[in-house]
Simulated assay, not measured.
Amino acid sequence: MSDSGYGMNWLTDYVRPKLNSLFSRRDMPENLWRKCDNCGQMIFHRELSEALHVCSNCNHHMQISPRERFNALFDGGAWIETPLADAPADPLKFRDQKRYPDRIREARANTGEHEAMLVARGEISGLTTVAACQNFAFLAGSMGMAVGDALLAAADAAVAAKAPLVVFCAAGGARMQEGILSLMQMPRTTIAAQTVAEAGLPFVTVLTNPTTGGVTASYAMLGDVQIAEPGALICFAGPRVIEQTIGEKLPEGFQRSEYLHEHGMLDRVTHRHAMRDELAVILRMLMRAPRRITGDLPAPEAQAADAARAG
């Protein structure tokens, strides 16, 4: 056997199989990369998490879990979860391709959450704040009795703490498996918003992609200030349904946050990376709280005391 033949056998019989085993798909963790829903860019999981699930290539804002959002929202990532009561299970004994309890169990297993909304209390730039956040990964964030109960609990917590309430909306609408009971959450959540208003406290909504159906038709559009993330679909009926109904092509970007802001339905369109600072400014203004002093300088009272002692 010639040296070249030996070298070729060594490459094909040893080196190539070794490389294939190192980079084999089955050896790669499935959650190591995430594909952007908008541009298809593959993003390293850790980088995506650090970027708060915003695509570095096209700036697309992907869905984010309530816990990840709260970690980024509250000072130092410190917050206290508000306990929520269990809503009646399967009140209509609903069944389509699956039984409703089976869908709930599957959603809980996939998300690790008990329901589609989480409520927490923490501080934003030193200001005590109550926040509620919908989880689109849990049955498309659909609004059933549990979500209605969660928002009422959030309103009560805000009033008790004399704190503003911020609600992050992300929903496909009402939960069809609860029928008319899910539609009744529209007036119930409206009452929650009114409870906060009657206490003289700010109610701010942040509309994320997507916010649709009965959520848009109730508390999502009742904020004292309404903010949206870039590119979010915000509507009651979706664009495809409207086009089929009226038989016309809709304008470019119709029902996206930038279009709604341009036409006066939203107050702000804010990038997720700037959301915490934006909310800090807005909430302090609405609460008439003094601007927070940051830095290493001593507090004004300490300065006065030092001057008095020196005199």
Score class of each variant (00 low, 15 high):
128 T>Y: 02
253 G>F: 06
120 A>K: 01
309 R>W: 13
76 G>Y: 00
231 G>E: 05
38 N>T: 08
258 E>Y: 07
269 V>D: 12
220 A>V: 05
251 P>I: 03
201 L>E: 08
272 R>G: 11
205 T>N: 02
78 A>S: 07
249 K>R: 14
285 M>E: 15
230 P>I: 00
224 D>K: 09
81 E>Y: 03
134 Q>E: 14
251 P>V: 03
92 L>D: 11
262 E>D: 07
279 L>N: 08
94 F>W: 05
287 M>A: 14
95 R>T: 11
142 S>L: 09
196 V>A: 02
7 G>D: 13
31 N>A: 14
232 A>D: 08
307 A>N: 06
282 I>S: 11
132 A>D: 06
139 L>C: 00
225 V>N: 09
71 N>S: 05
206 V>T: 13
14 Y>M: 12
63 Q>G: 15
42 M>Q: 10
174 A>Y: 02
150 A>I: 06
204 V>S: 09
115 E>W: 01
19 L>C: 13
43 I>H: 02
252 E>P: 04
83 P>Y: 00
61 H>T: 09
206 V>P: 15
112 G>F: 04
31 N>H: 15
253 G>V: 06
107 A>I: 12
298 P>H: 03
103 R>C: 12
238 G>M: 01
145 M>A: 13
156 D>G: 11
151 L>M: 13
277 D>L: 12
39 C>P: 06
52 L>M: 08
248 E>S: 12
149 D>N: 07
8 M>K: 08
76 G>R: 01
70 F>V: 04
174 A>W: 00
161 A>G: 09
290 P>G: 12
139 L>E: 04
34 R>Q: 14
285 M>N: 14
83 P>W: 00
13 D>L: 12
52 L>Y: 03
10 W>F: 15
177 Q>V: 03
166 V>C: 11
262 E>W: 07
192 A>S: 11
268 R>L: 15
144 G>Q: 03
200 G>E: 06
40 G>C: 00
108 R>F: 04
56 S>T: 09
1 M>A: 15
275 M>N: 06
145 M>Q: 07
102 D>K: 02
108 R>Q: 13
162 K>D: 14
186 M>I: 13
99 R>G: 07
20 N>G: 10
248 E>C: 11
219 Y>P: 08
209 N>T: 11
148 G>T: 05
102 D>A: 15
304 A>D: 13
131 A>R: 06
74 F>K: 02
130 V>N: 00
2 S>W: 02
228 A>P: 12
116 A>D: 04
120 A>T: 08
240 R>C: 10
150 A>T: 04
231 G>M: 07
152 L>R: 13
284 R>C: 14
37 D>S: 06
203 F>K: 08
45 H>G: 13
227 I>Y: 03
83 P>L: 02
156 D>P: 07
216 T>G: 10
160 A>Y: 04
125 S>Q: 09
311 G>P: 01
128 T>Q: 08
167 V>K: 01
144 G>E: 02
56 S>E: 10
216 T>N: 09
47 E>I: 11
173 G>Y: 00
